[in-house]
């Protein structure tokens, strides 16, 4: 009897997780993984929708060939500058939101209000609000032209790097708007560090500078990784980015191929981030 209960317990322990996960898994299989696999299938086929049904005609790697080698215009001209820009924006967004969250964690008058204001961009970012706003030239900083920073940059750097830097600087306001969720995540992460650790460090004579590097930063490393991943995902799947914008829903095959190539690139990017930051996280959490 006792053994039976124990066994039942172990069984339920083992499978309880699956039961809780089940609703999500079903939805996921139906609406995410099946469509994705289907789009992979479509990328090797010429898909036409006719009155009687959907016709698939196998074309092999023709579309991939087109995108990568024959007609690389769309791909290389738009993707590479975008990648360079992203390369700049990610660290800037992460560091900026980290700094803001540290500031917002201080005690001062109106802190709640400021927190709300900095979280506010979350409700702009996905809507067409920002696009409308940017299309009217409101996201740019006037001082770049005024102090001829952009001309200096184009003089000293090769054009392939100076243009993304200038555009990042130009879109600084955009960076502010992208960092709503990141600020929030950092803020929540900062709260997980208990005050007694800081108190102990203060008693041992540590100054705020040392406390930041020895306590705050190591404890926040998992959140840095989390935020970097979030930022990468956010930037790469933003509707305004050049590849997504060039998605043409009427050409099923070529579009699917383009998306899968794009996906592999993001995957590579993400793998790189995980490799670099993941190691840093492991080191810091071990030393703690």
């Amino acid at each position: 009897m006792n053994g039976w209960i124990r066994m039942k317990n172990r069984m339920s322990q083992r499978y309880e997780g699956i039961f809780l996960i089940l609703p999500w898994i079903i939805g996921f299989l139906l609406f995410v993984s099946f469509p994705l696999l289907y789009s992979l299938y479509m990328s090797f086929h010429n898909v036409r929708i006719t009155g009687t049904g959907i016709l698939h005609e196998y074309v092999g790697t023709k579309y991939y060939n087109n995108i990568l080698f024959q007609d690389g215009g769309v791909f290389y001209d738009q993707l590479l500058p975008f990648l360079r820009q992203v390369l700049f924006m990610i660290p800037i967004i992460v560091i900026f939101s980290f700094m803001i969250s540290i500031m917002l964690n201080q005690k001062f008058l109106g802190r709640g209000l400021f927190r709300a204001v900095f979280f506010l961009p979350v409700i702009f970012s996905s809507g067409n609000v920002i696009e409308r706003f940017l299309s009217q030239g409101r996201g740019q900083l006037g001082f770049l032209e005024q102090f001829s920073i952009s001309t200096a940059l184009t003089q000293y750097l090769p054009a392939s790097w100076s243009t993304p830097i200038v555009s990042v600087l130009n879109s600084f306001v955009l960076i502010l708007w992208y960092s709503g969720v990141q600020i929030l995540l950092f803020l929540a992460g900062r709260q997980t560090i208990s005050a007694s650790v800081y108190e102990a460090a203060r008693i041992d004579g540590a100054n705020p500078w040392e406390m930041f590097w020895k306590i705050t930063l190591p404890a926040m490393m998992p959140f840095v990784l989390l935020n970097t991943i979030y930022t990468v995902v956010d930037l790469f799947t933003f509707p305004g980015n050049p590849i997504i914008a060039s998605v043409n829903p009427t050409q099923y095959g070529p579009t699917s191929a383009l998306i899968w190539v794009y996906f592999l690139i993001i995957l590579l990017f993400m793998g790189l981030v995980m490799l670099l930051l993941g190691r840093a996280v492991r080191v810091t959490t071990q030393t703690r």
């Binding site: 322990q13 996960i21 996921f28 289907y38 509707p239 997504i244 829903p249 579009t255």
Partner: peptide, 27 residues
Amino acid sequence: HKFPGDKLVFATIMLTLLFAPETVSIP
């Protein structure tokens, strides 16, 4: 919880994070 396939599920989640929702509208 540790249950069979939990790593796989999470890896799949991480992968599908990278897809823009526009890609799967037809399927």
